[in-house]
Nucleic acid binder design. Structure first.
Lengths: 220, 220
DNA sequence: ACCGGATTCTATAGATCAATAGATAGATCG
DNA sequence: CGATCTATCTATTGATCTATAGAATCCGGT
C-alpha cells in the first residue's frame, strides 16, 4: 500500500517516540528502536531505499515484517531517522574545528578528518544519508537538507577565511572548493572496506594533503 | 513478477538487437530503441533503478508500459545498456589523453576534463552508470566493471608516471590519488545544473588546479 | 498465580510492479 | 486489393510490497 493513513499513529518524529507504541517503563523500547534503526540503516546502505524491502529489514532482526510497524509508522520515517542520524554530528564536529584557534590549513585537515571519522562507527547511517536522502518525502528532505546546508556553510567559511588571510590563493572559489572537498570525501564511503589497503586515518591525512598542497612536487 | 523466462526472447546484449523484435528495413527500429534508452536513462538517473518503474519510462515516451517489451526483454537489460552507454567513451578518452606527448600534469588536466565533458550531452547515462551500476545483475556488473577498472588503471598509470619522472611528489599513492580524482569528479554529476554558477569548463579547470597545486597560496 | 501492558505474531488488504499473450492498427509492397 | 511486417495496444498473471487489524505470547510487579 502506498498511501493510507487514518489511525492515530504518529507520523512525524517527536520526542523519540516514533510510531504508535506506548512508552516503556525502562529504556528497553528505546534500545530496541535503535536496534531496528541499525538494521534499517544496514539494509538501506546495502541495497538502497527502494531496493530494500521492510521484509529485508525484518530478516536482519529475525522478526516478522509487520512487527516493525510497532516501532515505526512508515518506511519513510525510518529513512528519515536513519538519514538524520547519518548527518547529525557533521555540523557540530565541523563547527568545533572551525572555532579552533588554528590556521585555515589545519582547519581543512580537521574538516576532512571530521568528515571521514564517522565512517568508522556509523558507516551505514552516513552512507544512507549520502545516497538515499534524495528519496525522502519533501518535508523530511527539507529538514535533512537544512542541517546539510549549514554544514556546507561552515566549510565554505573556513575556505573564505583562508583566502582572506592569504593562506589560500586568491582566485579560489569557496563554494566550488567545498563541493570538491565533499565530493572527494563522499566517495570514500563507497569504497572504504573494499579497498582494504586504506583506512580512515591514512585517507584523511592524504586527502587533506592533496587539497592543501596538490600533488605537484613543489619541494626541493 | 521477479523471474520468469520461457519464451525465446533474447536476454543478453548482442549485435544491437535487444529483445525479440525482428530487424527493420531501415534504421527506424534502432532509432526508436535509442529513444527508449534515452527515456530509461532519464528516469533511472532521476529516481534510481528501483525507484523507477517501467511505467515511468513509458510515460516519458507517451506509450503503454507493455510496449517497452517490444524493444527490451527486461528492465535489467535496459539498465545494462544505459550503464554501458554511460561508461563507454571514458576509457577511450582517457587513453587518448594518456598517450599524448605532454607532461603528467597536463595529462591530469586532460583526464579531469575528459571525465566531466560527457556530463554535457549524456548526463543521464553517466549518472545512471555512476549511481545505479551496483544494482546490475552479476554478469552485467562484471562487464561494466571491467571497462570501469580499465579506465581507473589508465588514470593510475598517469599518476605513477608523474611520480616516476619527478613531476609529482614521491610519497603519493597512485591508487588513492585516482580515487580522490574520481570522487571529486563523480560528485559533480549530482549537483551540475543545480549549482548554476558552475559549468563544466570552469569546474574541470578549477578541479584540475586543486588536484595539481592544492589550494595553498604557494606563490609570492 | 494472575493481571496488564509490552512486544511479536498471523493473516490479509490493497496497491503496484515486471512481464507475457494475443489482438489490432498502420505501413509497405506485391 | 490483399498479404506481410512493424509497432503499439488491451488485458491479465503472479509476485511482491507497505501497511493495518487483531490475536497470541511474554514478562514484570503484586
Amino acid at each position: 500500500m502506498r498511501t493510507r493513513r487514518k489511525s492515530e499513529a504518529i507520523d512525524s518524529v517527536s520526542e523519540g517516540r516514533v510510531g504508535n507504541a506506548p512508552q516503556n517503563t525502562g529504556s528497553n523500547q528505546r534500545r530496541r528502536q535503535n536496534e531496528i534503526l541499525d538494521a534499517a540503516a544496514k539494509v538501506f546502505a546495502e541495497r538502497g531505499y527502494y531496493g530494500a524491502s521492510t521484509q529485508d529489514i525484518a530478516n536482519v532482526l529475525g522478526i516478522r515484517q509487520a512487527s516493525l510497524y510497532y516501532y515505526f509508522s512508515s518506511k519513510e520515517i525510518a529513512l528519515e531517522l536513519v538519514c538524520m542520524k547519518g548527518v547529525e554530528g557533521f555540523f557540530e564536529a565541523a563547527s568545533e574545528v572551525a572555532a579552533k584557534k588554528i590556521s585555515a590549513s589545519e582547519k581543512v585537515r580537521g574538516l576532512v578528518e571530521a568528515h571521514l571519522t564517522p565512517l568508522l562507527d556509523r558507516a551505514d547511517f552516513v552512507k544512507t544519508f549520502l545516497n538515499e536522502r534524495q528519496y525522502l518525502p519533501p518535508a523530511s528532505r527539507k529538514k535533512v537538507g537544512k542541517l546539510s546546508r549549514a554544514y556546507e556553510r561552515v566549510i565554505e567559511k573556513v575556505i573564505a577565511e583562508g583566502i582572506a588571510n592569504g593562506e589560500f590563493r586568491k582566485g579560489l572559489d569557496p563554494r566550488l572548493m567545498t563541493l570538491a572537498l565533499l565530493g572527494m570525501c563522499k566517495s570514500v564511503a563507497s569504497w572504504l572496506g573494499k579497498e582494504d589497503a586504506y583506512a580512515v586515518p591514512k585517507v584523511s591525512q592524504e586527502y587533506a594533503r592533496i587539497l592543501l598542497g596538490g600533488i605537484a612536487n613543489s619541494g626541493r
